[in-house]
Amino acid sequence: MGLSTLLFFVITLLLGGAVGYGLFYVANRKNAQLGQSTQSSTILLERIEKVFKVVMAEGYFTEIFDYKDDKKFLYLFKNSKKALVIAKAKVLVGFDFAKMRFRLDETTNQMVIEYFPEPEVLSIDTDYKFYDIENGIWNRFSHEDYTNLLVDAKQAMNEKALEGDLPRIANNQIQFMMYQLAASMNWKINMQLPEANQKRLEEFSNYDEVNAEPKLLPKDED
């Protein structure tokens, strides 16, 4: 075998190895990229329900929750964990008309309402941010603690919305809309509600707008 033939054989072997390694590297890189970008998800539809809910008032709330939990170790050493939670929420208040009971009297063109639902919170869209989280040495925040904090904050938002003016605004809005709609169709609404239901709706009807009138300043005496 001559020298030129040997060199040709060695160069061919090196080139073949280099090409083979390059093809192997490219194939593995593509497989790796495909493996990284592959995702799978499963969406399960549990149930579909027909609802007749009408939103009549919308409110925006911001609440600050100062959470602190103290625990004692061996009844001697106190250890605390703290957190500041700022919660923002959009609250929708309205009525679930599936709860209303009524009958139509076509001879007198009347809608006789025998039960009218109270305004309720239909939806709360919340956003939470945690600040100044301080963990104790042996008293630390867990995932369950964070979940409970969010549940408490949402419950507080729900109570605050029902205690405010949103239910009264929603009740006045729905009453006005119903009577106007009935009058436009030459119908009348006849409320024949149970006493407790009537009294409760009257409480929601008592809505007084805030009147901000400037007070006159006393005149300066000469």
Results as ranks from 00 to 15, higher is better:
Ser205Asn: 15
Asp145Trp: 00
Asp152Tyr: 03
Met1Pro: 11
Arg101Glu: 08
Phe97Leu: 07
Thr107Glu: 15
Leu44Phe: 05
Asp70Gly: 06
Met191Thr: 11
Gly59Gln: 01
Lys154Asp: 11
Glu134Gln: 10
Ala57Asn: 00
Gln180Cys: 06
Tyr179Trp: 09
Thr42Asn: 02
Asp105Ile: 02
Asn109Lys: 13
Ile64Asp: 15
Thr38Met: 13
Asp152Asn: 10
Met191Ala: 11
Leu104Pro: 03
Phe9Tyr: 10
Leu14Trp: 14
Thr12Leu: 15
Tyr131Arg: 04
Phe61Asp: 14
Tyr131Lys: 09
Ile137Val: 07
Leu92Val: 02
Glu49Arg: 12
Leu14Ala: 14
Ala161Asp: 04
Phe73Gln: 11
Gln173Ile: 09
Gly136Ser: 05
Lys215Tyr: 06
Leu92Trp: 02
Tyr179Ala: 08
Ser4Arg: 10
Ala57Leu: 00
Leu92Gln: 04
Gln110Glu: 13
Ser40Cys: 04
Ala170Asn: 03
Ile124His: 02
Asn135Asp: 13
Glu195Asp: 11
Thr12Arg: 15
Leu84Tyr: 01
Ala83Arg: 07
Val112Gln: 06
Lys88His: 10
Thr12Ile: 15
Tyr21Asn: 04
Ile137Asp: 03
Arg101His: 14
Glu209Gln: 14
Asp66Leu: 05
Lys129Val: 14
Lys88Phe: 02
Val10Phe: 15
Asn211Ile: 09
Ser4Gln: 10
Tyr128Met: 08
Ile11Arg: 12
Lys154Tyr: 01
Val93Arg: 00
Val121Gly: 01
Phe65His: 09
Pro214Thr: 03
Tyr128His: 09
Val112Cys: 04
Ile137Glu: 03
Thr107Phe: 14
Ile169Ser: 04
Leu166Asn: 00
Ser4Met: 08
Leu193Tyr: 06
Ala32Trp: 06
Ser142Val: 00
Glu209Val: 10
Gln175Pro: 04
Phe52His: 08
Glu159Cys: 08
Pro167Asn: 02
Tyr21Ala: 11
Ser123Ala: 13
Gly136Leu: 04
Ala83Phe: 01
Ala83Gly: 07
Gln192Ile: 08
Glu213Trp: 06
Lys99Trp: 10
Leu14Tyr: 14
Glu46Asn: 12
Glu114Arg: 05
